[in-house]
Amino acid sequence: MATRQTQGLARLMRAPAIILLFVWMIVPLCMTLYYSFLNYNMLNPGMTSWAGWFNYQYFYTDPAFLESIRNTLVLVLGVLFITVVGGTFIAMLIDKPIWGQGIVRILVISPFFVMPPVAALIWKNMIMHPSYGVLADVARFFGVQPVDWFAQYPLTSIILIVAWQWLPFATLILLTSLQSLDTEQMEAAEMDGAPAYSRFFYLVLPHMARAITVVILIQTIFLLGIYAEILVTTNGGPGTASTNLTFLIYRAARLNFDIGGAAAGGIIAVILANLVAIFLMRAVGRNLD
């Protein structure tokens, strides 16, 4: 399969994709790095000057920064917990011999295809609205004071919405993994008299470990970048109670026009994402051969 001619052609065929991605990755990143050392505000472009580590220091000492890091972690971990645990159970439920499995599957995966702004708006207005939402109707039915979700529990509300969006992804992947479980092995264990819970912990869970890892890692990548859901519901507030790192940087760049500060935040986000990425690449890379 490898003559000089085909190898030469192959190089030519690979080149556009590689060059495009290389430029796409390197050029903006270098620009971000450069800007992060500048005093550069779009409202005052004439005053641009070298800032050294100032932007990083500023970011680091800003109480909103620490809170945004905390919120980012709570958001990611909260969603991961709900989706992995929920996804495992739902996957096992769908894997049972039920009637209408195809339709159940379709219903369960649907939220994944709802674009983030729509998902957020549906939850904000249809479900969680303090006077017209379904949850308020339910509360009134039981004679309880409806909860003003986004004012009282802003981060929790966003976690719920995002978890709803990602639950299908976790379920689908865990279901795929579950369905590749060797049924003969399970039957053998059943014949040996292993009770259901030990079959789960000793056979099912280890088999799904890989899929669970993949779910956690891939979701983390996406969850670190949650943006539209916050924009549409709480706009980061009240105060900075539901501001994550992505949103904080967006605010610095687009609302405060602080290019230097936003760039420094961007570099911090890259570092954060890379810590996760390293693990993900290992997990995926092992599967290449």
Binding site: L29, T32, Y227, A253, A262, G266
Partner: peptide, 8 residues
């Protein structure tokens, strides 16, 4: 992360 290259 997308936000890292938002500025440029």
């Amino acid at each position: 992360p997308a936000v890292a290259v938002l500025v440029p």
